[in-house]
Simulated scan of single mutants.
Amino acid sequence: MATLRRSLLRLRQTLMLSDPRSPVSLRSHVGSISRFYSGHGSVDVDLSDEESKRRLHNRLLYRSRQRGFLELDLVLGAWVEENIRAMDQLHIRALMDVLDLENPDLWKWLTGQEQPTEAVKINPVFCAIQSKVMSNLNSHAAPETRANPGQPWIRGWDDKKGVGGGPKYGNQ
């Protein structure tokens, strides 16, 4: 999805540069795909009536559950489902910004493996989600099972192959 967004942005820039006199709407060229890109204010957050609000909530809930990164699908989907109804326009835009982040970076930032950028650190939705994730980690996982802050958690499945009596092949 992120690759598609970058391609659409490049297309938009190319179209804008080809004829700077005419304003080109990305939405007119790519249809509904542009609704999923929220950077630079391209999506209108319409909470004026119940139908618009329902559509927006459903779209954001779908985006939070269908990222293609199982851990984020579960964490973001549950958090958005719990909180979307109480969010105002400012928080919905903040959620859109979080949903526009790349999966590997977002996961590392939410779990404390890496420090997020300043723009992400001040996002109220990111802070709330990170607080929930860290609370769950502290409640359900012993600190010694996790890597030190700033270090990746994932080790290779055969890190100990052939070392200290470990298996010679695979993860036996």
Results as ranks from 00 to 15, higher is better:
Q172K: 14
A128D: 06
L4W: 05
N103H: 02
W153L: 15
Q130P: 00
S131Q: 09
A86R: 14
Q113P: 00
L60T: 07
K108C: 04
M96D: 05
R27F: 08
Q115A: 15
L74D: 03
G41H: 07
S25W: 01
T3P: 00
L70A: 13
N83P: 02
I92R: 09
L15Q: 04
E144T: 13
G77V: 04
G77C: 03
V98S: 05
A128H: 04
N58P: 00
P143A: 12
M87L: 15
G31S: 10
G165D: 05
M1W: 02
L4Y: 08
V24S: 10
L60Y: 06
S32L: 12
I154K: 10
N148R: 14
E81H: 12
L70H: 12
L61A: 13
N123K: 03
L4H: 05
G150Y: 00
E71A: 14
S131I: 01
P152E: 08
S139I: 02
P116S: 04
V163R: 12
N58S: 14
T14I: 09
K53N: 12
F69L: 07
Q66G: 03
Q130C: 10
L95R: 04
V80R: 03
E50D: 15
G77M: 03
M87A: 11
M87E: 00
Q115S: 14
W107R: 08
G164C: 12
S32M: 10
N171M: 08
A142Y: 03
Q66C: 15
R59K: 10
M134C: 07
H40F: 07
F69C: 05
V24N: 03
S28C: 07
L8Q: 14
S25Y: 01
T117C: 00
K121T: 09
L101P: 00
R59C: 05
L74F: 03
S25A: 14
Y37Q: 14
V125F: 03
K121L: 12
Y169W: 06
E50P: 00
K160Q: 12
G156N: 09
N103F: 01
W109N: 14
R21Y: 00
K53G: 09
L90K: 15
D49E: 08
D97P: 00
V133D: 04
D73V: 06
D159G: 03
R65L: 06
N136P: 00
L60G: 11
A147D: 00
A142K: 15
W153T: 13
D97A: 15
G150N: 02
T117I: 02
